[in-house]
Simulated scan of single mutants.
Amino acid sequence: MIRASTFARLRGDTSGLALLEFALSMPIVLALGLYGVEISNLALTNLKLSQIALALADNASRVGVANNLSQQDLREYDVNDVLQAAKLQGTDLKLTANGRITLSSLEESNGVQRIHWQRCLGLKTGTGFDSTYGRTTIKNNAPSTADDSAASYDPTAGVNTASSGSPDNSASHPGSVITGGMGDVGSKVSAPTDSGVMFVEINYNYQPVTGTWLIGAKKLHSIATFIVRDKRNFTQVTNPAPTAKRNTCDLYTA
């Protein structure tokens, strides 16, 4: 039989009080600590994506090789170079495995804003990963408006196939007309008269440190634009021999 004095001693025993308080508070402290780590990583990932988008738009606005007309020809080789640079910058994020990069050439000619050509890199597909602001599309074998959801990507928009023995098809596939420019409402970007801008869009599935149980699934989005720096030949993207692979947006590769 337990004596009353035994209960009295237990009631007055405080030797395990600190351990008990720690056990009760540890889950709260741990959750707050993990949340802080996750939010910090999310902010850092957002910053990285922003810097990659800016670097890609900047690089794409500069590349090219001089032609006989004192202009810069943009080659598929050049486009591939700048896309690969973006991929390398995003290696630690596994950017092309977990996201999608879209590079668009928004150009102005005769008062018309047009997405002349687009190149893409990344495995992710569908709404939220394909371009949010317009696409080079084709429907019934004719160029379509950029917001036509029933149309598919036009892999021949703005390209030159002369090196393969076929005629230059850039005139018959000039891209897609876009009204009001590219970007979010209230901050859309338009190309200068008789010139163009490089518009970069990156969509990315955030890879959380602690799993989705803490902050849920996040899809990150970053855009950047630069006006084309040199006197570029806007009639086409050339592909002289030896030809380079075209990373058109109907393809989903890493």
Results as ranks from 00 to 15, higher is better:
A8P: 00
R9I: 05
R9T: 09
G12F: 05
D13H: 00
D13I: 06
D13L: 05
T14V: 10
T14F: 02
T14P: 04
S15D: 05
S15K: 12
G16Q: 03
L17Y: 08
L17A: 09
A18C: 04
L19S: 08
L19D: 06
L20A: 12
L20V: 09
F22Y: 01
F22G: 10
A23H: 06
S25G: 07
I28E: 12
L30M: 13
L30A: 11
L30F: 11
A31Q: 03
A31T: 06
L32Y: 04
G33P: 13
G33E: 13
L34I: 07
L34P: 06
E38R: 09
I39G: 08
S40Q: 11
S40E: 14
L42R: 01
A43Y: 11
L44M: 14
N46Q: 13
N46S: 04
N46M: 10
L47R: 15
K48D: 07
K48F: 11
L49W: 01
L49V: 03
I52L: 01
A53Q: 00
A53I: 06
L54F: 08
A55Q: 13
A57C: 01
N59W: 04
A60Q: 01
A60H: 06
S61K: 03
R62C: 09
R62N: 14
R62L: 13
V63C: 14
V63N: 04
G64W: 02
L69N: 13
L69M: 12
Q72E: 15
Q72A: 08
D73S: 10
D73A: 07
D73L: 14
L74F: 03
L74E: 08
R75E: 15
E76Y: 13
Y77N: 15
D78R: 11
V82N: 12
L83M: 15
Q84E: 12
A86E: 01
A86C: 05
A86Q: 01
K87A: 13
G90L: 02
T91M: 15
L93C: 13
L93R: 03
K94H: 12
L95I: 12
T96A: 01
A97L: 15
A97E: 10
A97N: 14
N98S: 04
N98E: 01
G99S: 05
I101Q: 11
I101K: 05
T102K: 10
T102I: 10
T102F: 01
S104W: 02
S105A: 14
L106T: 03
E107G: 05
E107Y: 01
E108S: 07
E108L: 00
E108G: 02
S109E: 00
N110V: 06
N110F: 01
V112G: 13
Q113N: 12
I115G: 00
I115K: 00
H116R: 14
H116K: 09
Q118S: 08
R119F: 09
R119L: 03
L121D: 03
L121W: 06
L121E: 02
G122T: 02
G122V: 01
K124N: 00
K124H: 00
K124R: 05
